[in-house]
Each structure stands twice: as C-alpha cells, then as structure tokens.
Design a protein around this nucleic acid. Structure first.
Lengths: 117, 117
DNA sequence: ATCTTTTATCGTAAAGATACGATAAAGGAC
DNA sequence: GTCCTTTATCGTATCTTTACGATAAAAGAT
C-alpha cells in the first residue's frame, strides 16, 4: 500500500505544509529561536543548548536547511548557520494568507448550535 | 533506542510545534480551507473534495480535532465539523510571536559574508 | 605528518504518520 | 423490527521521523 500522496494536492497546500513540517518539532523551533537570538551565525553552540546528541542536532539543521529556513556556511573546521530571513518572512506571509482565508467567513462557529459532541 | 524527546523542550515550543504539525500535511490544510469556505459545518463533503479514502479523511479530521483547530458535532447519522476560530487565531498569534522574535534581530544575514557553502 | 576539534553522514532501531479496506456504531427510513 | 446511509475505529502495511553511536571528512594546531 502506498503512503503519502502529497502529489495530488494543490501546490500551494503542499508548499505550506512542507514549511509547517519544518516547525513541527520543538527542537527545530528552538534552533530557529537560538539562531535569531545570537543573530550572527552559530555552530556547535546549538548542540549545547539542546538536550540532544550532536548527530541529531545536525540532522534537524539539515531539515531546516532543506526547507530553506536556514543557511549554512563552512567556516574553517566549524560550520556556521544563519536564519534565512527572507524565507522566514515568506513563510510568515504564506501563513498569514492562510489565516486570513480561515478567518474571513466571519460568522460564529455554527457547530454546537445543536446536536451533541 | 528511544524516540521523540519532546518532554525536554520548553512547553512554549512543544505547544507551537504540535500545532504546526497539524498543518504539516496538505490534506489537513485543505480540510481547514474547505471548512472555512463553507463556513457552516461540513461532513462527508470533505471526503468528496479530497483524493483520499473516507477512513483516511476521518483520521486527518481526528488529528485536527485533537489539535483543537476543529470541533466536531454529531448531527443525526452524520457528523458536522467546524473551524475552531478561537484556536486558529491563537495559533496565528503564537506564530506571529515566533516570527516577531525571529525577525527582530534586524541585522542582515551574517552568513555568506565569508567562507564557502 | 600527526593530533585535535568540529561537523556531516552512515547505519540502525524504534516510534510515528499515512493510507486503505473491513467492520462497528448510530440514527433515519421503511 | 430490517435496511441504508454516514462516520468512526480497528487492523495492517509501508513509509517517514527521530534518535543515537560510530565513523568519515576537513581544517587548524603542534
């Protein structure tokens, strides 16, 4: 049996869900916040901040990089990561668009008017 | 070997990542948009809109319900779902807060100043 | 050249997500 | 009561994610 038929959905929805998936783990949210805090690049410091092994952090960084939210540069023997602020603001506006759409039909929740839970 | 140590992260990050995970599949984004469009509750119509079997849609609906983004009410023999607009706007503000934090350190991307990719 | 430090990748194990068919449950129609 | 319709849940197969240790790779230090 097949698995994951993302191909059959609208590309807008696929794109958004792919970015949402990048935020779908607390470690990755923590990494993004750490990168923002130190603003300048960080490398193995991220490992110190998180309760995870180095290999795992590197894997999360790769996912963030694949999603485009983070850029990595090799700095001598160490690696340097930065937020990709353009990608972050793109994500913010995609999500903003979704939320606008979700909130636009302004009538109240018509569930729970009648019937049980 | 264990898997998923979400317990060790800050609860703010866990909460946000849990909500992000709800958006991390195109089917669920499509469901939310469909619910918003018809505004009023929908039931098996959702199945018609998506390229998925009934059982799969029901499973996605359950995840959205568990995340709190959707409410479900039993309407006679059929079920009726609605957006939980309060939860959606909570999510929007949580994400907004994150993005503010990420974009606040306004200096330019200090990566790629030097070094290779 | 050898050692050390730092990071990425490989291998692997286990948990979770995804999908579907089959079946149960619940209520309306008859 | 018996059917039919609708939805939820169970069972199951497969793919993905998550995690870690081990090891490779790359560059500075000695």
């Amino acid at each position: 049996m097949p698995v994951t038929k993302t191909e059959e959905f609208k590309s807008k929805e696929v794109r958004l869900s792919r970015l949402a998936k990048a935020l779908a783990h607390p470690a990755r949210v923590a990494i993004l916040r750490t990168l923002a805090k130190r603003n300048a690049c960080v490398c193995g410091e991220i490992v110190d901040v998180l309760p995870l092994a180095q290999a795992t952090v590197s894997q999360h960084l790769k996912e963030l990089k694949d999603a485009g939210l983070v850029t990595g540069t090799i700095e001598g023997p160490s690696s340097c990561y930065c937020l990709n602020k353009k990608a972050v603001s793109d994500l913010a506006s995609q999500l903003g668009e979704l939320f606008d759409e979700l909130m636009s039909g302004c009538e109240e929740n018509s569930c729970s008017a009648k019937g049980r839970q």
